[in-house]
């Protein structure tokens, strides 16, 4: 068929401009939400005290290192359990504040929301560690790995215990179990790091870390991941 006739046909069949097309199409397209977008979205809902705490810790570590404040490393280590507790509490906000049912009925399952939060906080604290540990190690002449393990051990221990506690019936009822665990671990860490405590121990803490530190951290990391998985899986829902 000739081009010209096709053009005439098109005109003959032309319909008036549809009126509701755009509105309809906008509604129609089920928007795909990518993982980075979802992480970003959840990050926007992480409360500011969490960011603030992380930033303060980092600022303290950096500042203390630059100014050579003597106890910087020990203070950072002792405060680490609280960072862990905060991140566990932040992850578990849905159940704590009764938002989980509404969140579960959205496009994403609550599991993926939890996962997203854990990932965001994980990234946040990893950044914090990557900045603080080398600064501290450099400033106080320690070995980088030793400093990192010193910081990580109390952090990860608190993570593991808090995750277990928050899942338990008792933990869910009280709501302060994570804080209590953090305080306890913090105290223990403080005690261990005291010079005079060393005589009560079979092995000096530092010696222990030097020999076994990396292994301990790896085991704790593995346990943390397992506990996080359990927490995610515990959410009763589809998929």
């Amino acid at each position: 068929m000739k081009k010209q006739l096709e053009k005439l046909l098109a005109e003959a069949y032309a319909a008036p401009e549809p009126k509701k097309k755009q509105a309809f199409l906008m509604n129609l397209k089920p928007r795909e939400v990518s993982l980075p977008e979802m992480l970003w979205q959840q990050a926007a809902y992480v409360r500011w005290p969490v960011w603030l705490f992380a930033i303060c810790m980092m600022a303290f570590a950096i500042g203390g290192s630059i100014l050579h404040l003597e106890d910087t490393e020990r203070i950072v280590t002792v405060l680490m359990p609280f960072t862990a507790a905060i991140s566990v509490l932040e992850t578990n906000r849905s159940t704590r504040f009764g938002m989980s049912e509404i969140e579960m009925a959205t496009r994403f399952s609550l599991r993926s929301v939890l996962f997203a939060r854990m990932t965001i906080l994980g990234i946040l604290y990893a950044v914090m560690l990557c900045v603080s540990a080398p600064m501290l190690a450099y400033a106080f002449g320690g070995k980088l790995l030793l400093t990192a393990t010193r910081i990580l051990i109390p952090y990860l221990s608190t993570m593991i215990l808090s995750l277990i506690a928050e899942r338990s019936a008792l933990g869910r009822k009280t709501g302060y179990s994570s804080a209590a665990i953090a305080a306890l671990i913090s105290l223990v860490t403080f005690w261990i790091s005291q010079e005079q405590s060393q005589k009560f121990m079979v092995l000096r803490y530092t010696t222990l870390l030097e020999n076994w530190g990396i292994l301990i951290v790896l085991v704790l990391l593995l346990l943390t991941i397992l506990e996080q998985q359990k927490t995610i899986r515990q959410v009763e829902a589809f998929a």
């Binding site: 069949y13 549809p18 097309k21 309809f24």
Partner: peptide, 10 residues
Amino acid sequence: LENAYDKIYR
């Protein structure tokens, strides 16, 4: 999709 909409509408 918009194209498809136009066609079906026509």
